[in-house]
Amino acid sequence: MSEPIVRLRGVRKTFWRDREPVPVLDGLDLDVPEGSFEALMGPSGSGKTTLLNLIAGLDRPTEGSIEVAGQPIHQLPEGALARWRSETIGFVFQSYNLLPVLTAQQNVELPLLLRRLPRAERRKRAETALRIVGLEDRTQHFPRQLSGGQEQRVTIARAIVNDPKILVADEPTGNLDKGSTKDVLDLLARLNKELGKTILMVTHDPHAAERATIIRKLDKGQLA
């Protein structure tokens, strides 16, 4: 068993609604081995997305420590956390979150703009990423000119273009038809196997979860 790339200890997350505390995660411990493909399942409101956001450095725990890729991120100030995200995490969202006014190529190039890279190098890397997801012939298309499955593959290209260690995917197939779902899951499995990316995927879909190497179930803020 390899060293865990994600290590959570005693993580608590409480939201406040109308001055009432709403505990979502309740003293969670979690170790994610490097190179694993994990599916997080659980009923709505069980805290799956919250857990994913904490690991991705999009949100902070109310209590507890989070160490990802050797970095205790619960202590990082805002600016450093943003930089860390850009270097360590690739995001795949349920509704793709592509910028509608940019082409596929430009969307994929976005994370590279945070690095000092020459324009030609950025272009090359974006093309490589789009080739990996099988969209080398759609580089100049705008999101509205692509199907849902293609949009999600552009999102995956954007997620891997910076060569991050971890991909977080929140319901990546939630908006897709059967065929596209299979394509996207195949692609994620390939990225996990061939490129060694650690993948954390939140999903409702048991068929999607079956593609993962580890399935974890979350219920009432606790891992079952």
């Binding site: 600016g79 995200r85 850009s86 995001f91 979150n97 910028l99 994370p111």
Partner: peptide, 11 residues
């Protein structure tokens, strides 16, 4: 879009 840019790491 702003949220996405922030998530991607834009300060």
């Amino acid at each position: 879009e702003i949220g996405t840019l922030r998530a991607l790491g834009f300060p």
